[in-house]
Design a binder for these strands. Structure first.
Lengths: 201, 201
DNA sequence: AGATTAATGGCACTGAGGGACAAAAAGAAG
DNA sequence: CTTCTTTTTGTCCCTCAGTGCCATTAATCT
């Protein structure tokens, strides 16, 4: 198996010599110095003190390093949604969950800004991020489908997923340009802007 | 310069031995047979009858081949927008231009479905496409900024660009799953769905 | 001590992409 | 008709990402 460290699961076999967190720290250190594209896998491996082959068992690709353990944080996102009382209107439930998700990320990682800065300004990473965004959109689409009695691949659930991501991304982009503003306020503002844009009939 | 064929511009120097269109046809022929990831640049070059190095002078990367001359079609998109009378409400102007842009694409290339199928279902291409979508969003953001007296990198113009793309992409995805439906109807339906989603307060 | 399990690291390979430079193929100038 | 200029092409060579294979290492379990 290509399965890397089981992460504390099994106590059997040779113990891992490093961790995702350590690799991430080393990566960001180098990215800050030489930029993302200017940093080779060999350089990161050397910084951590492991071989390139091992590095690629912790992360499937160089592009995955800045994203960290994103897939795992989606579990919390899902939990927030399903825990929402059903009498909360759908669009409010989704909006609140989106806010909560990003507030959590912010609190959990003080370096979240650097991470998003790197992801949103490096073309290579912008491109690769679509795959991650896809998982995020899927969570929303599944919840919308559940609430409306539709399937996740129907038009409306997918549209809500896409639009929620659109709002979040424009808020993030603006947030990077304006460090003094609060991300959750910007998500609200983006939503309000969309409403007024659509409502100006 | 890495500038490939000037495409009929100058009659000086050695004439190009091939064209973007020819490469594109050869590419799609092979992609259909072996899939996108299963097709090497060497194979495409051989199919066209040129060297790999020359192929990479026509297209910056393998990922760019399915997109064809997309950047050029954006000029028409821009033209449609600026030609819109200013008394047309902004959201209608943008919506109409989005419809016109996609209707044009459809008419111009009967193989547009195959192209979009490839782009939207191949992970490698999904990722790379973000860069193209970025140019498209920028066109909308610039127009919205123009109409509202804002800058293209302000929050609302960017949000409208992001959301317009979101609607178009969910319509496209649904269109691929349901060949019997018309793309422009789906864009309308996605928009209507968003309005009802947001309006269910 | 020996067997089992799981991680590591070395090696070799494919494939994308780019830099440098000479050769080819056209028109223009003498 | 030859020479110069311009532009494209092809060859060679290099770097880097990513994968498969396999021996090695370091732990636990019996």
């Amino acid at each position: 198996m290509a399965t890397p460290p089981a992460h504390g699961a099994s106590l059997l076999g040779r113990p891992p010599v490093t961790s995702h967190a350590e690799i991430e720290r080393a990566g960001f250190r180098l990215f800050a110095q030489r930029g993302f594209d200017g940093t080779t896998l060999d350089a990161i491996a050397a910084e951590v003190g492991i071989s390139r082959r091992t590095l690629l068992r912790y992360y499937d690709s160089k592009n995955d390093i800045p994203w960290g353990r994103f897939s795992e944080t989606l579990d919390g996102f899902r939990a927030t949604l399903v825990a929402t009382p059903v009498d909360v209107p759908l669009h409010e439930a989704v909006h609140a969950a989106v806010l909560a998700f990003n507030r959590f990320d912010l609190d959990a990682h003080p370096s979240h800004r650097e991470r998003m800065q790197l992801i949103l300004t490096t073309p290579t990473l912008q491109a690769h991020s679509v795959l991650r965004y896809g998982e995020w959109r899927q969570v929303i689409a599944e919840y919308v489908a559940l609430r409306l009695g539709l399937r996740p691949d129907d038009l409306l659930p997918r549209t809500v997923g896409q639009v929620s991501l659109a709002l979040t991304l424009s808020a993030y982009t603006h947030w990077l340009d304006h460090p003094e503003l609060a991300l959750h306020d910007l998500i609200d503002t983006a939503m309000a802007g969309l409403r007024s844009y659509l409502g100006s009939a």
